[in-house]
Design a protein around this nucleic acid. Structure first.
Lengths: 248, 248
DNA sequence: TTATTATTGTGTAAGATGTACACATTTAAA
DNA sequence: TTTAAATGTGTACATCTTACACAATAATAA
């Protein structure tokens, strides 16, 4: 998902040239940088987002994204993974950089630039080790107000997600390994905020050939159980380019 | 194009709370931030990009993006507009934030995080006031090597442009006010790197209804001249949402 | 003035995809 | 045994995509 910037190979140069470069950089104003992670999940037919309580007294009681400052010489992608790990224990999650938020008054303590990172994950797969202050999954639609400009960041990431899920079949990241077509459709409907024709939805996914019938049925549903499928990751990886642009 | 972050309305609080917030921020490492602008244009059937010579002795002779440091308390979007203006005199141009590049060794003078901004413009409309060191348009495809990690940034922005131009009919930003369908098609072919069927291309744009026949013909072409069109910006703005997803 | 060259402008048929829509079947629960 | 709720399935129609050819026009060169 996220493309890691590769190190720049710059020619090694005479020390006085390096000194010049260092001097130039030293003349630039410096800014504290933070990373905020927007972690989406899906459960009980609802899009959820992982939040903590703000640790600033000023925003006491407000919900806040999982964020912290980037360390010296730390790549931002690495910072995002580190912060997520520190606060939730999660390890095996992809994060995508979404954008920077840099309004000079976005933080009451002074100027901070933050980079928003976003991820989709399967809530069942990631037990929360609650290292952070009141770490909880929240129904996305119930979040009206947040600390700092975090509501704006959240909304930007939601828009990013809506777009993203139509370009790649990432819905699978949000579901259990085995899922029914109804669950898959509910997911798309929840994220896109539309209702979709059941037959056409099934036809669409059938024609993509990305679903493997695992030969099992749903259990413990109060109605006729549906077949369970798993996602054909192998085929997806092979034909990645093709799936861009899924229309419903 | 670019969505400006809106100021956060945070409740005014007791001074000691503000002090806490300030203290928190003060404990964060600080990083120099720069902005680099990738300005694409189109001329002589070629995608072009606006570059300057690196002003670092170390990268003497290398081409470099239009960049500079963000100032204290300056929003990054504003910084990008300011820098573009300072270096080229250009005023009336949209810039979109693309992404941050933060590899700790990306600059020989030490850690600098840069935010890439991207724009498409009509070369004829924007006479360059050359405030910068050897500011020139370059054929995109001729650029093989650049200062710092600027080649990587350029390539990322090119990929962004390819995607972007298929989601919105932004090709128009790159063309003169009046253009022929051939010019429009050349533009798409150049940016997407494919060749398109002429009849189908024309049909597609005709059906979008975004072209207005200005009742004039091309001049000074060594063959039968084509009709000239202008872009129906008004209609585009009204139906913006609809145009997402232009397939050829 | 004429012939040559390059490019414009135009339509259609076949295939692929999207959309709207209904009914018998299956399970759990009452 | 009935009821409720959801599954599984196919078709016709409209829309969009793709492939493809030829006469008309203007500029240029002979």
């Amino acid at each position: 998902m996220t493309k890691k910037p590769t190190p720049t190979a710059f020619p090694t140069h005479a020390p006085h040239l390096i000194k010049d470069a260092v001097k130039l950089i030293a003349s630039y104003p410096k800014v504290p940088i933070t990373v905020d992670c927007v972690i989406f999940g899906f459960e009980e037919n609802e899009l959820k987002v992982l939040l903590i309580r703000s640790d600033l007294e000023m925003y006491k009681g407000f919900w806040s994204l999982l964020g912290d400052n980037a360390k010296d010489n730390e790549e931002l992608d690495s910072a995002a993974y580190r912060i997520l790990k520190e606060r939730t224990g999660m390890n095996d999650v992809y994060l995508d950089q979404v954008r920077a938020f840099s309004h000079p008054q976005r933080h009451p303590g002074g100027r901070v630039i933050t980079l928003a990172y976003c991820s989709l994950l399967n809530i069942q797969h990631h037990e929360l080790k609650i290292y952070a202050n009141e770490l909880h999954w929240h129904s996305f639609s119930s979040i009206k107000e947040m600390a700092f400009d975090h509501k704006e960041i959240l909304d930007t990431c939601y828009a990013w997600l809506q777009k993203r899920i139509q370009e790649h079949p990432l819905g699978f990241n949000l579901l259990p390994d085995k899922f029914s077509l109804r669950e898959l459709q509910n997911l798309y409907e929840a994220i896109l905020g539309v209702s979709l024709d059941r037959r056409n939805f099934r036809k669409k996914f059938a024609s993509m050939g990305l679903l493997i019938d695992v030969g099992e049925m749903e259990e413990d549903v109060p109605h006729r159980p549906g077949k369970l499928y798993k996602f054909n990751f192998e085929k997806y990886e092979k034909n990645k380019r093709k799936w861009i642009g899924i229309d419903f």
